[in-house]
């Protein structure tokens, strides 16, 4: 009985509020940044910076914590992408657009399938690059599993707008995919 009580006590103190926030939101923050950047390592860097910024400014149990993190994930990822584009322009290459693709399933052993997958990823990257930042944001947020209300909170619009924004962003994306990768 004593052991049971202590087990509970230990479990209760496993995570402090910031750790709990991190464990809950980190996967989604990475998912959002990944869908903007299409580069998993860069997305993780962005996500970690976002949490560091949050910790310096706000309490971990603030009611707006989730929305703040999601919004910051989109903005930081878009910023990181702009930075990469600037660098590649300065260096006279398209390195940022042609960098290796780290997202998606890496466990495919078949080299042919890997190549096809990499090509598809490159198409996705080029199609996204042609969208407005607002469209990229709504796609990244909603397709990372945020609800309409959460997506709206992160974008600073009302929930009623999300359906329309999403439908337009998706239509634009499909059009651009068809353009960059005519089948």
């Amino acid at each position: 009985m004593l052991i049971e009580r202590e087990l509970r006590v230990s479990a209760d103190r496993v995570a402090d509020p910031f750790d709990a926030l991190f464990v809950r939101e980190y996967p989604r923050v990475v998912a959002i940044a990944s869908r903007v950047l299409l580069d998993r390592d860069a997305a993780e860097d962005v996500a970690q910076d976002v949490f560091v910024q949050y910790h310096r400014r706000h309490r971990p149990d603030a009611p707006f914590a989730g929305a703040w993190l999601h919004r910051a994930a989109v903005h930081a990822a878009l910023n990181a992408r702009r930075g990469a584009l600037r660098r590649s322009k300065r260096e006279g290459s398209s390195a940022a657009l042609e960098a290796p693709l780290h997202i998606g399933s890496g466990s495919d052993a078949d080299p042919l399938r890997q190549t096809v997958r990499a090509e598809e990823r490159a198409d996705v990257r080029r199609a996204l690059a042609r969208l407005s930042e607002r469209s990229r944001a709504v796609l990244a947020l909603r397709h990372s599993g945020l609800t309409y209300a959460e997506t709206a909170a992160a974008l600073g619009v009302t929930t009623g707008h999300i359906g329309t924004m999403l439908a337009r962003a998706e239509a634009a994306f499909i059009k651009e995919i068809a353009h960059v990768a005519p089948r």
């Binding site: 990475v30 998912a31 997202i103 998606g104 796609l139 397709h143």
Partner: peptide, 11 residues
Amino acid sequence: SVREALHVDGV
């Protein structure tokens, strides 16, 4: 289609 295209692995 968009969901499929934007799939990323979980953390």
